[in-house]
Design a binder for these strands. Sequence first.
RNA 1: GGUCCCGUAGCUCAGCUGGAUAGAGCAACGCCCUUCUAAGGCGAAGGUCAAAGGUUCGAAUCCUUUCGGGAUCACCA
Length: 632
Amino acid sequence: MEHAIKQFLLHHSLTLFGTDVSSGMVQVQRTKKEVSGDLTLLLFPFVKALKASPQELGEKIRVALISEFKGIQQIEVLGGFLNIHLSSEYWVNALEDIQKNPNFGSEKPESKPLLMVEFASPNTNKPLHLGHLRNIFLGYSVAEILKANGHKVIKTQIINDRGIHICKSMLAWERFSPLNDQGERETPQNTGLKGDKLVGKYYVEFDRNFNAEAKSIIGRWEEGNFESFSDPVVAEFKRLTEAKEGKDEKALAGIEDKIKDLAKNQTTLLRDVKEMLVKWEARDPQVYLLWTTMNNWVYQGFDVTYKSIGVDFEKSYYESDTFLLGKDIVVEGLQKGVFYKKEDGSVWIDLTDSGLDEKLVLRSDGTAVYMTQDIGTAVDRYKDYPEMNGIIYTVGNEQDYHFKVLFLILEKLGYSWAANCSHLSYGMVDLPSGKMKSREGTVVDADDLIAEVVEKATEMTRERGHLEGMTDPAKEHLFNTIGLGGLKYYLLKVDPKKRMLFNPEESIELNGNTGPFIQYTHARICSLLSKANYSAGTIQECPLNDEEKEVIKLLTEYPSVIAEAGQTLSPAVLANYMYELVKSYNHFYQTVPILIETDENLKRMRLAMSASVAKVILSSMKLLGVEVPERM
RNA sequence: GGUCCCGUAGCUCAGCUGGAUAGAGCAACGCCCUUCUAAGGCGAAGGUCAAAGGUUCGAAUCCUUUCGGGAUCACCA
């Protein structure tokens, strides 16, 4: 209707106003709640351009619209606003359309170009944590939303399975794992630990030993023992030590960090781990076997977590597969003059003409860096899916700069599709105690968190749920649905771009703007419908009260909400819409009788409305990756 | 220091392509289960939209400056 009115005014602008009006001038929006009416046309833009009074203009438009649209019941001009009242008939027809359409809100599947959505993207040296969960839920939901917008979508993850950080866990495991009776080092099998947790443990172990070694080196230096250290290092240490004289606390800390870095660079652990990386890139069989084994432990661990949260991928990319391609492209780019080589053999790109810095793309020892792999991965993906119309990278906003540079490099390399790549940048998750820091042990482990929310849901549902006659597996499933649903909704309802606070208590809350609140409304409607033996059918015209009209109005907005969520890549748009819908339905539910209504037409309409609300809840929660129970 | 993001009720967040009196939830207070699931509803309370200028008929929304918070500027990923 909004669109029709807008088109009508544009087409008849000459006869109405005596001049053409631009499409931007015709602003039709929902009427504010406090004012009576359904749609509002803003008269201000015309007043200004045509130099006529709002009353005069409003009257002209009023007459024209009323005679044109039979769905319009009444129009009043209030100040600079023209408020349009639509008839009950119009709303009842709208409801009937919604009721009849099984895919209400969504575009035709696969009617739009292929998009790739990358999310999760874990490192294989650390277990998943709360930050990953925001990433995963967000990426998954955005993929679903894009599908609902008609796109074909490939969900993918990039597995960060190479690089020096992986070698750290490997080295630490080889060196520090205790041997059992059979002379075996620790494995998931002989410890019962989840694979990702075991590998993560050795990553931490590396760091501990690494720091300890650096500390002992500094200790030796401070005692004046410089045996086996090169002259430049010793000179640098002395220079830094002297620089400490008379500095304030902050500057002092900076210098000590530099000394620490200097010492870290002299550790045998770092030397060995670098050696391991070079061996790995040279496909050394022993190193490769160790790498494959430990990575498989991690994947098995991740799979358990993914399965528990109902997330899957169509395709996974491994950096170990793409970094070589990246290196090749760098060599090519070097020949083309996109990159340049420094004296030490390292390869760089100069982005200063774009207002950025110089960026390293290949180390002096010839090994790949993060950027090298990402170049290779992007190109590899377009090789796999030449028809693809874009890649959406779901990655935290601390990497805004990285992606800016990546897309620019791809463009400079001459890939026209670089313009279609975009970074879905999301904010960090803070804890009430502050930032999550793995080094300080303040990360929230994903598996622990999931277990916790499910446990809480179990407790609450046993207390107040309607579980009579449910089988035990069905109950388990319900507890999972509620716990996970609450967690997903909690993380998704906030604008992705914004940094958010994770409050453990609020995340398992059941009242207010929460997943369970919405799930509950759905369950209640299902109960209502089954009691009424409801089945869809035609609805007779009947008068509508304010509560009913409000709910139907919101229902009609669902398709545009999906479109907006797709455009802005924001599940939060959907979540907030759904909350509004559910709130207004609950208000209706509490004020208006349904089953005991004696007027059959009214009862039918109210049931159809309830069924439509349930349908939209189910559909939009699915787009958030949240299941919705029929009873709870 | 350069670049980017953020600042709305005690707390967590909506609202931001400029439009009518800035909205929710939580917390705290008062009501409503012999009508359908009270994980619900209703009411009252809570605001210098960080501050100051500017643009406009009209600014939480756009521009500038200041203040406050954060990210980033690695031969880490």
